[in-house]
Computed example of a mutant assay.
Amino acid sequence: METAYLFPTYLSLLTLCLCPSRAATSEAEALMRWKSSLSSSASLKSWSVNNISNHCRWIGIHCNDEGSISGVDLPFADLAGTLDLFHFTALLNLTTFNLIGNYLNGSVPAAIGNLTSLIHLDLSNNQFSCAIPPEIVRLIKLRFLSSFSDNESSGELPSEIGLLTGLKYLYLSNNSFSGSIPPEIGNLQNLMGLDLSTNNFSGPIPSTIGNLTNMWSLDISSNKQNGPIHPPLGILQIWSTYISLPTN
């Protein structure tokens, strides 16, 4: 008799294990809505409402052990459109968001600041034309930020960038960023790579760059800086792999 009671319970637990959670299904549905907004998405054939229970096997999608989407990794996937209908608040477990080398345009929505688990963010080599959304400073777990390299981005680099103290790589080259390089960049003492080249930054190079003693690659060339280069020679010798500074 006891076995008879346990058997239905066992089947219920097995069903729960085999079926994706409602939360995970909602994540997949959010991605489907974004796909439908794109003008080019032929590479996303596996993203289908008929295959939604297998969303962890969709191209470019990674899931954690609970079946929640933890990575969107779609480099050079010939995607065209915007991020306007990307439902960031439905994908709060993302640790990787990589859309490098597509044809995405418009602005980067402020809602990206909700992805507080994000470690790797790369939106470079697209056609975004916007300033860096200030909400990006909420992404305190970021280690790699190349969201705006080789786009059409403009505006100033916000001083709040200095709050992202876990960053190891910050790449913002080949845009139209202007204004001065904020001295708060010297707070990013875990930086190993910094590329602000080919922009319209002006004014003196902040002396706080000398605080970045873990740096192995630095490029701030092809800007409009003037005045002396402040970091002492001893610090520059620590950056022994690659250095490209403005010449005055």
Score class of each variant (00 low, 15 high):
residue 2 E to Q: 13
residue 2 E to N: 13
residue 3 T to G: 12
residue 9 T to V: 15
residue 11 L to R: 13
residue 11 L to D: 10
residue 12 S to Q: 12
residue 14 L to E: 12
residue 15 T to W: 09
residue 16 L to D: 15
residue 22 R to I: 15
residue 28 A to L: 12
residue 32 M to F: 03
residue 40 S to T: 14
residue 43 S to F: 09
residue 43 S to K: 09
residue 46 S to G: 13
residue 51 N to R: 08
residue 56 C to R: 11
residue 56 C to S: 07
residue 58 W to K: 02
residue 63 C to Y: 08
residue 63 C to E: 04
residue 66 E to T: 12
residue 66 E to W: 07
residue 68 S to G: 11
residue 71 G to K: 09
residue 71 G to P: 13
residue 74 L to R: 01
residue 82 T to F: 09
residue 82 T to E: 07
residue 90 A to W: 11
residue 94 L to K: 05
residue 98 N to H: 15
residue 99 L to F: 09
residue 100 I to D: 13
residue 100 I to R: 15
residue 102 N to M: 13
residue 105 N to F: 08
residue 106 G to W: 01
residue 108 V to L: 01
residue 109 P to G: 14
residue 109 P to T: 02
residue 110 A to N: 11
residue 111 A to L: 06
residue 111 A to H: 09
residue 118 L to Q: 06
residue 123 L to W: 07
residue 124 S to D: 01
residue 130 C to H: 01
residue 133 P to S: 10
residue 134 P to V: 12
residue 135 E to V: 10
residue 141 K to Y: 05
residue 141 K to T: 14
residue 147 S to G: 12
residue 150 D to M: 02
residue 152 E to P: 05
residue 158 P to H: 12
residue 159 S to D: 14
residue 167 L to W: 06
residue 171 Y to G: 03
residue 173 S to G: 11
residue 183 P to F: 00
residue 193 G to A: 05
residue 195 D to A: 07
residue 196 L to G: 03
residue 198 T to M: 15
residue 203 G to Q: 13
residue 204 P to W: 06
residue 205 I to W: 00
residue 208 T to R: 01
residue 211 N to Y: 00
residue 211 N to K: 00
residue 223 N to Y: 08
residue 224 K to W: 08
residue 228 P to W: 07
residue 230 H to R: 05
residue 234 G to W: 04
residue 235 I to A: 11
residue 235 I to T: 14
residue 243 I to D: 02
residue 246 P to K: 02
